[in-house]
Amino acid sequence: MNFSEELKERTSRADAVIRQYLPQSGEKPERLTEAMNYSMTAGGKRIRPVLMWEAWKLYGGTGETVRPFMAAIEMVHTHSLIHDDLPAIDNDAIRRGKPTTHAKYGEALGLLAGDALLNYAYETALKAFGIPGADPERTAEALRILAEKTGYRGMLGGQSVDVENEKNEVFTLDKEALDDIYLRKTSALLEASLMIGAVLAGAGPEQTAVMERVGRNAGLAFQIRDDILDVTGKTEDIGKPAGSDIKNHKTTYVTLFGEDGAEAEVRRLTGLSLQALQGLQGDTSFLRNFLLSLAERKK
């Protein structure tokens, strides 16, 4: 099986796990659960649950405990996209080639759908405690990581700084300030995915720290690739409005270092992620190819 086939198989598995934990069709309040499910099934690469599964496998994970966490991390991610698209933040009407949640259901329900998914993510992750064979200490640590990496120290903190800069017309940032935003709003969820998979499988602190480093550098590379695609990509290919960073006068790696400089940084950071995987026991071939594919993606 080549990498493309492996990726398709793993993405399909992650998607099936996610759908298993979504609200039932018609569950009340019907309009809210419909908006939640619309957002969760509107497409997407399922990057974070795939990373979680790979880390879990790498460290010898067995059983089903990882499954609710795979769904939960994608719910958190989707919540962030719904809120990003709202008129109060990016005011985007297209996401993944389809109307954004607020464009389809209205601003109020879009806001509530995002809130509901964030809350439901933790409700879903808590179901891991009820799975036969689940280790309570590992599961609690995984929940701690999920909460910390998605909260004010992580994803939401990064989003808040990004939004505040834009609303206050702070358009000139240096690399250090930009990295801080990217590490929080993008790297944090990739770190969480890999760390949670490792912890649930029984990895120790040093092994979990390796996964955190992998996610940190891969997340930075991922976000810088987004900066590049905003300039070079087409809306129909990337699934969201191209040129929005320029329109909003945002500082990106492209504005700081140009396309060539941004490309060089993607390569450097991806190299650091791959270097961190060296020497680990187990088969890391898919994970390595996956990280490379994220860094080199065209959409």
Rank of each mutant, 00 (worst) to 15 (best):
R297Y: 13
T65Y: 03
V161W: 05
Q281G: 13
Y122A: 07
E6D: 14
L22S: 10
P29M: 02
A147C: 12
A201W: 01
N37C: 15
E236C: 00
E206V: 08
I94A: 07
G106V: 07
A35W: 04
D179F: 09
A295W: 05
A134E: 11
K247A: 15
D283G: 08
L126A: 15
I89M: 15
L269Y: 07
I94T: 13
A103S: 12
E169Y: 01
E54I: 04
P49I: 05
T252W: 09
A88K: 09
R225Q: 15
D283T: 05
K299L: 01
I73L: 01
A72S: 12
G97D: 08
L156A: 15
T208P: 11
S160Q: 07
E212L: 03
W53K: 14
T139P: 10
A108S: 14
G133M: 06
S193A: 15
Y59A: 04
L190K: 13
F3A: 10
Q281D: 15
A128C: 04
E123N: 03
L287N: 11
N248Y: 11
T65G: 12
W56P: 14
D179M: 00
G215Y: 12
A192H: 09
T235K: 06
V76L: 15
A14I: 01
A42S: 15
S4C: 01
K28P: 15
S285Y: 07
G43H: 09
Y105W: 04
F3C: 01
D84T: 07
M40C: 12
G157V: 02
G282T: 08
